[in-house]
Amino acid sequence: MDRGKISKWLKYPEKMGHKYSLWAIYFATGCGIMEIPPVLTSRWDAERFGVLPAATPRQANLFLITGYVSVKTLRPIVRTYELMREPKYTVGFGSCPINGGMYWDSYNTIKRVDKYIPIDGWIAGCMPRPESIFIAVTKLWMMIDKGAATGYIRYRENYRYYRENQERILGKLDWPPLYPEKMGEDNG
């Protein structure tokens, strides 16, 4: 951890700020949310790494998708993601957002979340232990350091692809596109 290095702070204040102040909004979609309270409270204390629960998507920059995503919860997930301010990082928590997990043949569960919103990192497991959240956070630090956590840029660049996929599952979306200028051009 290079949180104490003043020289690095002066050189890259932007990167360091985003690294050590991750305010998480966690979407209580499934069982994964059970692992969040011990992470935030006395047992594991995520605050020592600067990870705080944020009250609203506007204030957050880390999006934790905890557990399976049903078709009905995909809509608020997309809305929440679009409400967050850039730069924003997404982490899929548990095996269900990765490939469906135990709901691989369910009629009502989204199988791969990264077809609908970009995901920066995955935490595999069913359930992952709270420690794995910290491993994910340290990996995310490394990615931010190298400039590899580019999910939000991917979303902007391929907005038409993502929006088409969302509309394919959810029908016509009732909010205007986030990047209207990207909707016209073909980026397939």
Binding site: I110, K111, R112, D114, K115, P118, R154, N158, Y161, N165, R168, I169
Partner: peptide, 8 residues
């Protein structure tokens, strides 16, 4: 429904 959607 789900599998025909191509990944990025």
């Amino acid at each position: 429904t789900f599998d025909v959607i191509p990944s990025l």
